[in-house]
Design a binder for these strands. Structure first.
Length: 441
DNA sequence: TCTGGGGTCCTAGGACCC
DNA sequence: TCTGGGGTCCTAGGACCC
């Protein structure tokens, strides 16, 4: 039996822990750049505000109902997430942190205690709420996909009191018949449309398609696995997280600019600052990357611009994996030069580091490198670059992010940063910055 | 006027290897 | 007439998730 624990309206719930005045009112949290709605309180959902809705489309409605919009505050949400995951890990042996607000639980071997399992899960919810202030729902099922189904229904039907268990074929059938096919984990907009055009409207109907059909229409083996999971046949195991964090296979940093950019130098300034941030994360995880991707995007909402809106270029780092910002900057610049076209207008850029491996493990040695003891080449010996990066990281930890950064990402004093985004409704980092601690009068 | 960021997995052709 | 089989790596792109 798998469990899926999911924080209700997670970002809004985090804000409410520190701002009780937000209780009972429509509240939304916005994406970076204050662009879209990414979390909604129950009251905001009631108003018909959709997930992902552009903020400018719902601003008036929200104001009319004395609602509140907040910029996203990832320092706060990340810290609250760690607290929730810590409570879960303390009480359940197998926990897989799936996202900032979700975790799978391994409950195999506990299925036989029918009553107690249910009671135990209720107690777990109470504990998380009492210790962190975050309300959750829990779904239980024989596969991860069915646990997701149960979780979704537990959220939609308050009379279930936040917990639903799909432990028999009859319960499974009832649940799948009640779930629109587009709400199934793994069915997005495109697949939902394909399914509807074939008359498949519920999760139950999807569970009945043939292997050949699933493979043909739902992305090959992925779709077939999904169907089997709906039937109760597990295709995915639980990948327990060490120390309550996720083991990631790529690191990305990308941003939509606060304004449109078309000069190479501005674009390169943005990319170099994102790369700098991405490599910081890389080193913080003790990893090296051997694939570097850069992408730049035009406005996909501008009907005058023909697709593709995003162009990307990937490079295998010559000479093996690295976490050296300076080396990667040199390669990234070449990629931007390759992608950039004068006259085009860009709204977003990003970098991705892939092919991660632990730093210093099984490193490829250079046959033509100088022998130990010989003078290191002028450019940058491995050791020197590591020391340099350690110093940069230490300075940025001590004096704040971006204190030391690529020259390309520095603008003249007093000048605005061309690629800076917007965040006009940010709440304080209550739990991670001393100067922003909550004051109680 | 205004539309996010950070992830996952899979596909597929070509180069290259033994 | 008739031109292998089984791999990996590289690169770009597409679908999905929260």
């Amino acid at each position: 039996m798998f469990g899926l624990v999911d924080g209700n309206n997670f970002y809004v719930s985090c804000e409410r822990v520190f701002q009780p005045r937000l209780e009972g009112r429509p509240v939304v949290v916005l994406s970076n750049n204050d662009g879209n709605v990414v979390s909604r309180s129950a009251e905001a959902k009631q108003l018909g505000i959709a997930m992902g809705a552009p903020f400018f489309q719902v601003r008036a409605l929200l104001r009319q109902h004395q609602g509140q919009a907040l910029s996203s505050n990832y320092a706060l949400y990340g810290d609250m997430s760690r607290r929730v995951m810590a409570r879960l890990s303390e009480q359940v042996p197998g926990v897989e942190v799936y996202s900032i607000d979700e975790a799978f639980l391994d409950l195999h071997g506990m299925d036989t205690w029918l009553g107690p399992l249910q009671a135990r899960v209720r107690a777990l919810r109470q504990d998380v709420l009492a210790c962190t202030g975050i309300p959750t729902c829990v779904g239980l099922g024989p596969t991860k996909t069915l646990a997701k189904v149960a979780n979704r229904l537990a959220k939609n039907y308050p009379e279930l009191q936040g917990v639903l268990r799909l432990d028999s074929d009859s319960r499974r059938e009832r649940a799948l018949r009640a779930l629109p096919v587009g709400d199934v984990w793994g069915i997005g907009r495109q697949y939902a449309q394909v399914l509807l055009s074939h008359g498949i409207t519920t999760a139950w109907a999807l569970a009945g398609v043939s292997e050949a059909w699933a493979r043909q229409h739902l992305g090959g083996v992925v779709g077939w696995r999904l169907v089997q999971e709906l039937r109760g046949q597990p295709c995915q195991g639980l990948q327990p997280s060490e120390d309550g964090t996720l083991a990631r296979q790529s690191i990305r940093c990308s941003r939509t600019f606060g304004q449109r950019l078309s000069h190479f130098d501005e674009l390169w300034g943005a990319v170099s600052s994102y790369l700098s941030r991405a490599t910081e994360k890389l080193r913080a995880q003790g990893k090296q990357a051997h694939l570097l991707t850069v992408f730049i995007s035009q406005d996909r909402f501008d009907t005058r611009v023909p697709p593709p809106y995003t162009r990307s270029a990937t490079l295998t780092v010559p000479g093996g994996p690295t976490s050296d910002t300076l080396r990667l900057l040199a390669y990234a610049r070449r990629l931007v030069e390759r992608l950039y076209e004068p006259g085009r207008v860009y709204v977003k850029a990003g970098v991705v580091l892939d092919g991660l491996e632990p730093a210093g493990r099984g490193q490829q040695l250079d046959l033509f490198a100088p022998a130990p003891g010989a003078a290191p080449p002028l450019s940058c010996s491995n050791n020197r670059s590591q020391q340099l990066m350690q110093q940069v990281d230490a300075l940025n930890r001590r004096f704040g992010r971006g204190t030391v950064r690529p020259a390309a990402a520095v603008v003249a004093a007093g000048q605005p940063v061309p690629w800076a985004g917007k965040a006009q409704h940010r709440s304080p980092a209550y739990t991670t910055r001393l100067e922003e601690l909550l004051w109680v009068k």
